[in-house]
Design a protein around this nucleic acid. Structure first.
Lengths: 174, 174
DNA sequence: GCATTTTCACCTAGGTGTCAAGTT
DNA sequence: AACTTGACACCTAGGTGAAAATGC
């Protein structure tokens, strides 16, 4: 998933151990299509049937509150798929649906049920945060030029598609 | 370090947490030189002055005995340097000296003193293993053809230097 | 003369969007 | 017509020994 979600965490007990995890939940029960001439996502019917729940457990888990709070916690290794039979542990989503990523901070002594294949437990010892500005719509092909440009300009792995990169290939270098 | 040291571990308490670590200790107090015509390492004087002790803590640490025993524990990410001022956490060794790698299994409740920059603690809760067949002599350039061939033939990153690789580059493919 | 460092081409491994082709 | 997939060129990132350059 790019751009990656990155969070700063405060208020933990420095000496307590925590897991940090992310899941991605549907925003509504709708399927969408993109209307190019109005540059808007429009409802295009009801959502497809639910997919197996998956949780991305941050690879720095288990770590102390102290460790978590000292760093920016980045979810850049989180991967998405539309393959409901995925066996790589990726988070499974429907294409053309709206989703909200959520961050979970889970005290170690409350993590007995934590699993990549089960919903995140809730209750005392688990805090969940979601940021409305991170809602996104899944696609298999980009629907507009702005998103393509954002991806190409910001992702180091897409450097080959940048205008500057393309032009510079034709300059003579001495 | 290639080939990497790889170990199978048995006899741990499945539910106990352990660190696994490696350090590399001098075999003797000598400096060596390689005599090509006899294909042997000969003593060439006394060892250089000791270097700062470094410990490689296996990146899967901390993990349960169960987890450790289920896998082959590989030290392929361990890195060596001859730079005594190294700040990358690599293990510092003198070139042209003989060394013995050691594997340490450290119970979590005994790991208070465990640090990449301090000698591994010893006593109850720490078990240390060394395998004489893994003794090696450090170099900055290979001293004989056998070791070069071993490296090239066995290390995937050296594929470009294999005979088959070199020849195949010249074949026409159609 | 020997040991060490630096630079380099050549790999592994894997993350990008593009485009052509396939699917529904 | 819209959506999805797969092959591809092009990157990042970093692990190899060869060979040249440097040091002692």
């Amino acid at each position: 998933m790019f751009p990656a979600m990155r969070v700063k965490i405060a208020g933990l007990d420095p000496h307590q151990q925590y897991y940090i995890a992310m899941d991605i939940v549907p925003v509504d029960n709708k399927r969408y299509r993109y209307v190019y001439h109005s540059s808007k996502w429009m409802v295009a019917g009801n959502a497809d049937s639910p997919v197996p729940p998956r949780v991305y457990i941050h690879p720095d888990s288990l770590a102390s509150g102290d460790t978590w709070m000292r760093q920016v916690v980045s979810f850049d290794k989180l991967k998405l798929t539309n393959n409901e039979l995925d066996d790589q542990g990726h988070i499974i989503l429907h294409s053309m649906h709206k989703y909200q990523p959520r961050v979970h901070v889970i005290r170690k002594d409350f993590s007995s049920e934590l699993s990549p294949n089960k919903p995140v437990p809730s209750g005392e010892g688990v805090k969940t945060f979601s940021f409305p500005e991170t809602v996104f719509t899944t696609v298999t092909a980009y629907q507009n030029q702005q998103i393509t440009r954002l991806k190409i300009d910001r992702n180091p792995f897409a450097k080959g598609f940048r205008d500057s990169g393309r032009n510079s290939c034709c300059h003579e270098v001495h």
